Amino acid sequence: MNKLVIVYTTKDCIECTMVKKVLTEEGIVFESRDVMANPEYQEEVEKYGFLGVPVTVVENRAVKGFTNELKDLIELAKN
């Protein structure tokens, strides 16, 4: 069973686009949440301890940005 994957993003965020592209290439289904369109999404990001985007969440684990930690989350999402 696939785990819920959420990517907190904004419309013109290049790094966000890169994260979503990698997830798509890896076959990971994800929900994209635009923090500029919904203030509640920004509050969710802040609960994970971040102010900016992209933030990718799998289960209760969150990673900020397009980093090597994202690979770990991808593996978590697949298992």
Rank of each mutant, 00 (worst) to 15 (best):
M1Y: 12
M1H: 14
M1A: 13
N2W: 02
L4K: 13
L4I: 09
V5T: 01
Y8A: 07
Y8S: 07
T9S: 15
T9G: 10
T10P: 02
T10R: 14
T10F: 12
T10I: 14
K11I: 01
D12T: 11
D12S: 07
D12F: 06
I14N: 05
I14T: 08
I14K: 11
I14V: 10
E15L: 09
C16D: 09
C16I: 06
C16V: 10
C16P: 06
T17Q: 14
M18C: 08
V19E: 08
K21W: 09
K21R: 14
V22F: 02
L23A: 03
L23S: 11
T24Q: 15
T24K: 15
E25F: 03
E26Y: 10
E26L: 01
G27C: 00
G27R: 05
G27I: 00
V29Y: 07
V29M: 10
V29N: 11
S32Q: 15
S32L: 08
R33K: 15
R33V: 05
D34K: 03
D34Q: 09
D34F: 04
M36P: 00
A37G: 14
N38S: 13
P39R: 05
P39A: 09
E40L: 15
Y41T: 01
Y41F: 15
Y41I: 04
Q42G: 04
V45N: 08
V45P: 07
E46H: 12
E46G: 06
E46P: 02
E46A: 15
K47C: 13
Y48E: 02
G49K: 13
G49L: 10
F50P: 04
F50C: 07
L51K: 15
L51I: 15
V53F: 04
P54Q: 13
P54S: 11
P54F: 07
V55W: 02
V55S: 03
V55A: 00
T56K: 05
T56G: 02
V57Y: 04
V57R: 01
V57E: 06
V57M: 06
E59N: 13
E59A: 06
E59L: 03
V63E: 12
V63P: 01
K64A: 14
K64M: 14
G65C: 04
F66K: 01
F66Y: 14
T67W: 09
N68L: 12
E69C: 01
E69Y: 04
E69G: 07
L70N: 05
L70A: 01
K71M: 12
K71P: 02
K71H: 12
D72C: 10
I74S: 04
L76N: 04
A77S: 07
A77R: 03
K78L: 12
N79Q: 12
